[in-house]
Design a protein around this nucleic acid. Sequence first.
DNA 1: AGCTACAGTTCGGATTCCGAACTCAGGAGG
DNA 2: CCTCCTGAGTTCGGAATCCGAACTGTAGCT
Lengths: 148, 148
Amino acid sequence: MSYSDFATLPCTLSRPAALLGERWTLLLLRQIFLGTRRFEDFQATMDISRSVLTDRLNVLLQEDVLKRVPYHEDGRTRHEYRLTEKGRDLYPVLMALRTWGAKWMAPDEEEFFQLHHRDCGGDVRAKVECTECAAELTARDVQVTTRQ
Amino acid sequence: MSYSDFATLPCTLSRPAALLGERWTLLLLRQIFLGTRRFEDFQATMDISRSVLTDRLNVLLQEDVLKRVPYHEDGRTRHEYRLTEKGRDLYPVLMALRTWGAKWMAPDEEEFFQLHHRDCGGDVRAKVECTECAAELTARDVQVTTRQ
DNA sequence: AGCTACAGTTCGGATTCCGAACTCAGGAGG
DNA sequence: CCTCCTGAGTTCGGAATCCGAACTGTAGCT
C-alpha cells in the first residue's frame, strides 16, 4: 500500500487526509479562503514553484474542490480558480486548524488576519458535536469501531 | 518565503497548515487516533519508508504533539508514541476531515471504521460556530479582516 | 509590428523519498 | 558466555519530486 492508495481506501478519513496531506495543498486552500484566485497571485504570495502550483491546482480541479471561472479585465478574458460547493465545505477543516493553532501555536506578534461572525461580531471556532444529543465531544467521548 | 516559513508566520492558520501539510503527517495522525502507537506498527500498517517515518515522528515529538512513553512487554522496556494534550486537541481537525469525506468522498463499500458518542450512540460531526451567539457558521457568515 | 501581462510548460540541478540492508540494545535459551 | 531474536531505528544508492529560471503562447494595447 503506497501513499496514493490511502486516497481510495474505503475510509472517509483517509481519503481527505491523503488529498489534503500533499505538500502545499493546505496552504493553497488557506490562500484561497483568504481570497486569492489567480495563478500569478498564488505564485507571488506563496512563493511556490510554478510547476508544483500547476499540479496542485489541477488535482483540486479534478477532485471538484476548485473550478476555473472566466473573468474579464481590460477587455480580456482570463480564468481564475474558485471554490466549488465541495470546496467551500472545507471551511470547517481550515477553521479546525486555526482553532488549534490559536490555542497551541499562537504567535507573539499581531495576527495576520482576524475572523468575526458578520451578524454579531463574535469569534469563530471549530468543534465536534454529537448529532443526537448535541453535546460537544472530545476524542475520549467517542467510541471507535474498526471493521472486522 | 519558502514552505517552512509558513510554519513561523504570525498566522494561527498557516502554522498548523504547514506542520500537518507535510506528506504522511495527516495519515500518521489518523493511524494514531485509531490506536497505533509503535514504530513497527506504523511501518507495517501504513507502508511508509522507515526513514520518513522516523522524521515525521521526530517532528511531531518536537512540536509536542506526541510523546515517547516507556512500556513493558516480555519483561523488556521499549517506547511507544502517544498523543499529548496538544495532540489530542487535534481531534476536531481529523473529525472535520472525516465529516467532509463522509459528505463528498464517501466510498461505495463498507466504512473502514465507525464512530459513536459513548453516552448516547449518536453520530459525530465537526462544525464551526460563533462563540458569542452559538450560531453554526459557513464561510459566508464570516468576515475576514487582513492586517494592514 | 512591437510590447506587456497572464498562465502556464520545460528542463537541469537540488532535495526528498523509497526499499533494502545494516546497526544496536536487551532479553531468552543453551 | 555465546548466539538468536525482536523492536527501533540508521545508512545508503537509486527513483521520484521539487525548485528556479528560462521559455512559450495568447491576447490586447500603442
